[in-house]
Amino acid sequence: MSSQPHIVLPWTVRRTRLPLLSLRCVDCGTRSFTTGEGRFRVNANGKLLDVWLLARCVSCDRTSKLTLHERVPVRCLEADALRGYRDNDPGLVAATLLDPLFAHRNRLGLDWAGAWRLYGPPIPLDGVWPVRVEVGFDDPVPVRADRLIAAGLGVSRREVGRRVKCEVSLRRSVSSGFSFTVLAAG
């Protein structure tokens, strides 16, 4: 019997929405903010600009400003970036949220629960074993490998640990492509 998988299936992870922000609200104390569709606020003081990303508490609707640029000369910002801030460019909002320096500066984390979806064919349970699955990411969505595989296979994470051979650690977050092999039960 060959040790090579007979079937190779592609899975793709796609972002369905922007992640929630894990940030404490000063009014109600909850730790969940959303950027909604994403809005920037730009304030000019002479030739200096302040740029913030606006976030709203999901519990009490309080709006908070997350600092992007503070007292920066206008000439230091690219024209495309300024246009994106003015037009509330969704791509610029996503890029800002995914920037680790922005998260560190504003002391926030990203909550990706429910913000991604797995697309791909199901693994045939009566098919030929082993089955190799190649996972690709359309967006850099960090998700634990064992949770992703368990969701795709419809089994528990414990079962994933028994039946899956993976090139990355199952207990670590991944946000780029990887592959794994599913072995027959038993």
Rank of each mutant, 00 (worst) to 15 (best):
R24G: 05
F33A: 09
E159F: 03
E167P: 00
N106K: 08
T34V: 01
P142Q: 07
D126E: 14
I149M: 09
L92W: 05
L49C: 06
A115L: 03
A94Y: 00
V42T: 15
T67N: 08
C76T: 13
L23V: 02
R31H: 09
I7K: 13
L21F: 08
T63E: 15
G29M: 09
R17L: 01
F33I: 00
Y85P: 00
W116D: 06
R62H: 12
G152A: 06
Y85C: 02
P140G: 07
F33E: 00
L110Q: 11
R15I: 00
F102L: 07
D89Q: 05
R17Q: 15
I149P: 02
P122W: 04
S175Y: 01
V93C: 05
G186D: 10
E167V: 12
L20P: 00
P140I: 01
R147D: 15
A145K: 04
A103N: 08
L54C: 10
G186P: 01
T12R: 15
P5V: 05
R147G: 05
R158G: 14
L98W: 03
G36I: 03
P100M: 06
G109Y: 04
R39S: 11
G109M: 05
L9Q: 03
G114V: 07
H6M: 06
L125E: 14
S179D: 12
G46Q: 09
D27R: 13
G161E: 14
N45H: 13
V135D: 07
P5F: 12
S22T: 13
T67E: 07
R147H: 14
V26L: 09
H104E: 14
R163P: 03
E167M: 04
E167L: 03
R171I: 00
L97R: 12
A94G: 06
L98T: 06
L101N: 10
A103C: 14
N45S: 14
R105A: 15
S64M: 11
F40H: 08
L54M: 13
P73V: 06
R158T: 13
S179G: 10
K65I: 00
L77Y: 07
G154H: 05
V155Y: 04
T181D: 02
V135I: 06
L54R: 13
D27A: 11
F33L: 14
R157H: 01
A113K: 13
C57T: 10
